[in-house]
Simulated assay, not measured.
Amino acid sequence: MKLVLFCHPSFMKSESMPRFARMIGQAMQGKGLDVRYWAPRPWVYRFFDGTRLAKWAGYIDQYVLFPLEVRLRLLAQGKDTLFVFCDQALGPWVPLVKHRPHVVHAHDLLALRSALGLIPQNPTGASGRLYQRYIRWGFKQARHFISVSRRTADDLITYGQAQPQTSAVVHNGLSHPYRRLSQAEAYARLKSAGLPITEHGMILHVGGPSWYKNSAGIVHLYSAYARGHAHPLPLWMVSSSHRNADVQAALKDVPPQGQVLFFQGLENATLEAAYSVAAAFVFPSLAEGFGWPLVEAHACGCPVITTDDAPMNEVAGPLAYYLPMLNPEDDMQAWAQTGAAVLDGILCEPAAQRAEQVERRIAWASQFTTQRATDRYHEIYQAIMVK
């Protein structure tokens, strides 16, 4: 069996999707498959890189020139080739191979749901709405899908209008082998990285600046917790941005005894140490495609607080502590008070119970491995070729 992996063009400067494609490619090569990567080249984009026309030049490369190149390449492909789309956002290319063996990896449909007006916190402009409909027009013609969560699989049908012959769910595997460190090793790593760790640890959040990370809500939750303590633990916000207007407003609500610190660019080894000493990990997202940090925190034995909604409750499982979804019309202060009460409950757990939960969290996280994911991909690829 041969694989052709359809990938995002390098000029899009994405990191996660190329990493995902390489992970699949390397794993399948290790199983003896012939793997090729197909992606648009910057024929037009290179003349406009860095200008306001760069995006549109990239569209010409992706949706005008690349399809012509694909049609020529297909002439040399036999019946033993499976065409793998590494992201459903590559949907406009699906019709090129819809009558050949193919499969689409689906990560999340947040952009499509926003374009359909279903996420008021993230309105989409007219051109964005058209673009998402164009992507949907393409991927809904696919017959086989692999989704990272049950939520994504459901969204493909509900919002993506897909009518798959097969639809499998394969959870992502951790890209780094996170493990729980001893307190001494974790503290040494954090101090070596120049981070202001104290003997009592901290409340931890890891997540980017995207709207669905609920950064302002996390700060409000922390404020509600801090107001109830003379010496509250500090809140570490890793990879989040404090420049957001809502976050700035929330920071003004933090009491004098509280402390919110923002950090960027922490390496995996440093994050591993932070998860290992954190008193709790707070991740009440409004939405996710998968939610990597939930598994990372569990792998290091850290207690997790997240949102009781898919896919967060699917990924975090029965060992997490859950908060209700924070909707736009909800009372922020009431929601924050609920979260603070949950956080206080975690911090007051008896030592013996906490130690037992650590082992159970680590066991839960052990199912999310790259090896398990790629083995399952291989099984699905083979089944599609048989069909």
Rank of each mutant, 00 (worst) to 15 (best):
M1W: 12
V4Y: 05
F6Q: 01
C7I: 11
S16M: 12
M17D: 00
G25N: 05
G25R: 06
V35F: 09
R36G: 08
Y37C: 11
Y37R: 11
W38L: 13
G50D: 04
T51L: 01
T51M: 00
L53P: 10
A54D: 10
A57F: 09
Y59P: 12
D61Y: 01
L68M: 14
E69C: 07
R73A: 13
D80G: 12
C86M: 15
D87T: 06
D87I: 09
A89Y: 07
G91W: 08
G91Q: 02
V94T: 01
V94W: 04
V103K: 07
A106M: 06
A106V: 04
H107W: 10
A111E: 00
A111T: 00
A115Y: 04
A115L: 10
A115Q: 04
P123D: 00
A126V: 11
A126G: 02
S127V: 15
L130W: 03
Q132V: 15
Q132M: 15
I135W: 00
W137H: 13
W137C: 03
Q141C: 10
F145P: 05
S147C: 12
R150F: 12
R151M: 08
T152N: 01
T152M: 01
L156P: 02
I157M: 09
T158K: 15
Q161H: 13
V169G: 05
G173M: 06
P177W: 02
P177V: 01
A184L: 11
E185Y: 12
A186L: 07
K191E: 13
A193D: 13
G194D: 04
L195A: 03
L195M: 01
E199A: 13
G201C: 02
G201V: 05
M202Y: 05
I203Y: 02
P209W: 11
P209G: 00
S210T: 14
Y212D: 01
S215G: 07
A216F: 02
Y222D: 00
A224H: 04
A230H: 07
A230P: 05
L235N: 09
M237A: 12
V238H: 12
R243N: 13
V247P: 09
Q248L: 06
Q248I: 08
K252D: 07
Q259A: 04
V260W: 02
T270G: 15
T270C: 15
E272G: 03
A273M: 07
A274Q: 11
S276F: 10
A279E: 04
F283I: 06
E288A: 11
G289D: 06
F290W: 10
P293T: 10
P293Q: 04
A297R: 02
A299Q: 01
V304D: 03
T306W: 05
D308E: 14
D309M: 15
D309V: 12
A310S: 15
M312P: 00
E314H: 04
V315W: 02
P318V: 02
L319P: 08
L319G: 06
L323A: 02
L326N: 11
P328L: 08
E329F: 13
Q333S: 14
A334N: 05
W335F: 06
W335D: 06
A336Q: 01
Q337P: 05
Q337E: 11
A341Y: 10
G345V: 04
C348W: 15
E356W: 09
R361T: 00
R361M: 06
I362E: 04
W364Q: 12
A365E: 07
S366G: 04
Q371D: 14
Q371W: 08
A373Q: 11
D375Y: 08
D375H: 03
Y377P: 03
Y377R: 09
H378S: 14
H378I: 14
E379G: 11
A383Y: 11
V386H: 12
